[in-house]
């Protein structure tokens, strides 16, 4: 078997099921704030919340197909975190996550997104995940896209096994989500450029508009393929029992972040005032892209792992 960059029919089916669900529930304008309970239940019923866990049939590729669709509608709530939980939590907790009965927060040393509202509170630090709930009396805040965030003092209870696998999966699912969202952003801006006229012609006739859009299309397309490669790698290593290592997932996450942020920047410039309305379609997407790009997983560890990867490659190829 040679190179094959297409999703399998099973993976496509997962993506289509999620897309259908999103069309039906979310419609055109994704809401600010946390995920409504019935949407969360819907995701659980679709099997999305258990993807890539030891119990699931589908792996990272199926999850990637699903998360690209979730990104395209800027789906709310801690969905990436649920799948991280599927890697690092105990079996009975994983089952509860898969049913939609238990939600997971992944935050920094003092910020816990989606809390209150998440029974499991994890802290990320470098390549480690800790079970580290906030002490009572935390402060309730709200993020850029009106998601709840709590700020307080954590108590580290344990470092979780499979932290690396969980974080790698998290990076690649954030990448998939951002790629899906960014593709939609580029499509919206291109659509606007084709239909909006100025000086008697569509603004997309001007190279000054068309070329930046071509650039962000290229950035998003290459990040998309890198994300798929990372998902393939993750699945292969899971099947081979090696356990994921930092590598392509980190690259996918860094590439997708950059591409999605740049896509928003260009799309806002192209769409002008139309991009600024709260009703959308652009602003709710770009706001959530900004939010996910600032995820607690951060970029420092991913960047260091890219340099480490180079170290290894140079050692290998040039002696």
């Amino acid at each position: 078997m040679s190179l094959d960059l297409a999703f399998s029919s099973e993976q496509l089916a997962v993506g289509e099921a999620v897309a259908g669900f999103c069309r039906e529930r979310v419609g055109g304008a994704p809401p600010a704030g946390d995920c409504p309970a019935d949407w969360w239940q819907g995701l659980a019923e679709l099997g999305v919340l258990e993807l890539a866990s030891p119990e699931a049939e589908g792996g990272a590729l199926e999850a990637t197909a699903a998360f690209e669709e979730l990104g395209a509608v800027a789906f709310p709530g801690p969905v990436v975190e649920a799948l991280i939980g599927g890697q690092v939590l105990r079996r009975e907790e994983r089952a509860a996550v898969a049913r939609g009965a238990l939600r997971v927060s992944v935050g920094t040393h003092d910020l816990a997104p989606f809390v209150p509202g998440c029974e499991v509170q994890l802290e990320v630090s470098g390549q480690s995940l800790f079970r580290a709930p906030l002490a009572a009396g935390f402060e309730s805040l709200s993020s850029l896209d009106a998601e709840p965030v709590a700020r307080g003092v954590r108590t580290r209870e344990e470092r979780l096994e499979r932290s690396r696998a969980g974080l790698d999966l998290g990076r690649l699912l954030l990448a998939a989500y951002l790629v899906g969202a960014a593709r939609r952003v580029v499509a919206l801006a291109a659509d606007h450029a084709r239909t909006r006229t100025q000086f008697g012609r569509p603004i997309g006739d001007f190279q000054a508009v068309a070329h930046p859009l071509a650039d962000v299309y290229i950035g998003v397309a290459s990040a998309e393929t890198l994300t798929h490669a990372a998902a393939c790698e993750w699945d292969e290593r899971r099947d081979e029992g090696e356990g994921p290592s930092p590598g392509l997932a980190a690259a996918a996450w860094l590439a997708a972040r950059e591409a999605a942020l740049e896509a928003c920047h260009v799309a806002h410039q192209v769409m002008g005032a139309q991009g600024m309305t709260l009703e959308g379609p652009l602003y709710p997407l770009s706001r959530r892209i900004r939010q996910r790009a600032s995820h607690a997983i951060g970029t420092a560890t991913a960047r260091e792992s890219m340099v480490a990867r180079l170290d290894a490659r140079v050692g290998e190829s040039l002696g």
């Binding site: 393929t225 860094l254 260091e304």
Partner: peptide, 20 residues
């Protein structure tokens, strides 16, 4: 350096897409 390592991978992905 880390950014360039990512860019190089993106370049490779795009070339693979052309081939595919």
């Amino acid at each position: 350096l880390s950014a360039l390592a990512v860019v190089a991978l993106q370049v490779e992905m795009m070339a693979l897409r052309v081939l595919d």
